[in-house]
């Protein structure tokens, strides 16, 4: 059972991060964080971009998991899923930098 948890860790983090960004975006638009300007961009935008980058970094940090893997199979699958999770975070989160938040 722990094997399943370890090989899923990177993807679980992605699922969490993805939900978090979506929730922040929804709440931010509803409560007007879009209107507050800070250093040339909306507060909401700063918030989202920083969260996104932290999530990607956290995803990459999970690469440490591969070191403690107990078998070759586990190590390779963990490596692949951690990279998949971090890559997916990078790509699926990229709209926070590229698109308009509330329209």
């Amino acid at each position: 059972m722990t094997l399943l948890a370890r090989v899923s860790a990177g993807l679980i983090l992605w699922a969490f991060g993805f939900s978090l960004l979506y929730a922040l975006q929804g709440a931010g638009c509803a409560y007007g964080w879009q209107e507050i300007q800070l250093f040339g961009a909306a507060l909401l935008r700063w918030f989202l971009v920083v969260t996104w980058l932290l999530l990607v970094a956290a995803g990459l940090a999970l690469l440490r998991l591969t070191r403690s893997a107990s078998s070759d199979f586990e190590r390779r699958v963990t490596l692949a899923t951690v990279l998949a999770g971090a890559g997916a975070m990078l790509v699926t989160g990229s709209p926070v930098a590229l698109t308009s938040a509330c329209a």
């Binding site: 699922a15 993805f18 979506y22 692949a80 698109t99 938040a101």
Partner: peptide
């Protein structure tokens, strides 16, 4: 990867419901 990603797609059935573009982008 498929198992997890497939839970992050559902809004693509709702692209025309007026959700902000950023959310659609995710």
């Amino acid at each position: 990867a498929l198992a997890f990603l497939s839970f992050g797609l559902w809004v693509h059935h709702m692209f025309t419901t007026g959700i902000p573009h950023m959310a659609l982008g995710f």
